[in-house]
Design a protein around this nucleic acid. Structure first.
Length: 336
DNA sequence: CATCCGTGGAC
DNA sequence: TGTCCAAGGAT
């Protein structure tokens, strides 16, 4: 496995030379690393940056997070997506305080037992915070390592050949830096599309580059096609107030608020005839597993027209999804 | 193991 | 405009 050793050495040399600084790097506090890792799940560094800064200012410690109302956490998360992460992070803080005396587990098994921490995040925290030579295979790790190996089969973090090569790569003395270097290389150079092989610091170790089939690697499992849904939304606003209801605890956009919507989450009948409302056009939104087109209707000063929900002041709106904000903006209701 | 979970940016 | 995709996890 001399290839693995020389690859890791060249990658770390590049990492030291690049000196890419990120706000959650070099933190002695595991909490900052955990928060950043959870935010970074399926989310770009660019998108995470402002959220991380605000979140750490608002909830500086696990104790502060555990003591905060869930609605405050959701408000800090709104717009970032995958809201179950916010629920899990809040739950994680409470478990840490109540069951671990605020002490972080230091093993991958212990970390993985916490809500919101899976295989990747447990390995990443164990390596970056506690210096353990664990595997932290995410999308970057799979892409970078499979290209270096020239591995042309369908691949995932569970693929034995990939895990074997990764194990041979991880330097016992700098496992955290190694995985962060893999992330940096994967984001800046070994990108999914248009990889910058000409300036790659580990080109000489790369079987895919030598063979010229980097763009065919990795071969990922096929994705499902996205169905289309349609529905309606009714927006009431009056004197700087808007009628909102809270979504259920589980499922899509859990516990976020929205104007009443119908027809796109299963069978439902319209409580009002849209004919007598003001049509405000449509809002389109793309979720991971379906696309959505909502017809938006608005009316002013009506009596309480929906069984659930309440008026909310524009000055202190509850946590809203990006979809809810789009719908409100469609009626020229000022949000954000 | 397949499905469900957001969002915005790049091309 | 459509498509892909980004430091995944829970069920």
């Amino acid at each position: 496995m001399m290839d693995a050793i020389s690859f890791a050495g060249a990658l770390l040399a590049w990492y030291d030379d690049q000196g890419i600084v990120l706000p959650w790097r070099g933190h002695p506090d595991p909490y900052a690393v955990v928060v950043s890792e959870v935010m970074l799940q399926q989310t770009t560094v660019t998108a995470v940056m402002p959220y991380f800064a605000r979140f750490m200012a608002r909830f500086p410690t696990p104790h502060a997070l555990a003591a905060a109302p869930l609605d405050d956490v959701l408000a800090a998360w709104q717009g970032l997506g995958y809201y179950r992460r916010a629920h899990n992070l809040h739950k994680m803080a409470r478990v840490l305080v109540s069951e671990h005396h605020g002490q972080w587990p230091t093993t991958t098994q212990g970390l993985k037992a916490l809500p919101g921490i899976g295989d990747y995040t447990a390995g990443a925290v164990a390596a970056m915070v506690f210096g353990q030579p664990t595997l932290a295979l995410d999308g970057n790790g799979v892409r970078v390592l499979s290209r270096i190996m020239g591995f042309t089969d369908v691949v995932s973090p569970a693929t034995p050949a990939l895990r074997a090569f990764a194990t041979a790569c991880v330097p016992k003395d700098r496992p955290g830096d190694f995985w962060q270097a893999v992330m940096d290389l994967g984001r800046t150079t070994c990108r999914p599309k248009n990889p910058a092989c000409l300036t790659c610091p580990v080109r000489d170790c790369c079987v895919g580059w030598a063979r010229g089939d980097v763009n065919e690697i990795p071969r990922l499992a096929g994705k499902k096609e996205r169905p289309h849904r349609t529905g309606q939304a009714f927006v009431l606003h009056h004197h700087g107030h808007v009628w909102l209801r809270r979504r259920p605890d589980q499922g899509l956009l859990p516990r976020l608020y929205e104007p009443p919507t119908f027809g796109w989450e299963g069978p439902s009948t319209l409580p009002h005839d849209p004919t007598f409302w003001e049509a405000c056009g449509v809002v389109r939104h793309i979720f991971t597993h379906f696309s959505l087109e909502i017809q938006v209707f608005s009316s002013h000063g009506m009596d309480v027209p929906f069984p659930d929900g309440a008026w909310h002041s524009r000055a202190s709106l509850p946590p809203l999804s990006s979809l809810a904000k789009k719908i409100l903006q469609q009626t020229l209701f000022w949000v954000d």
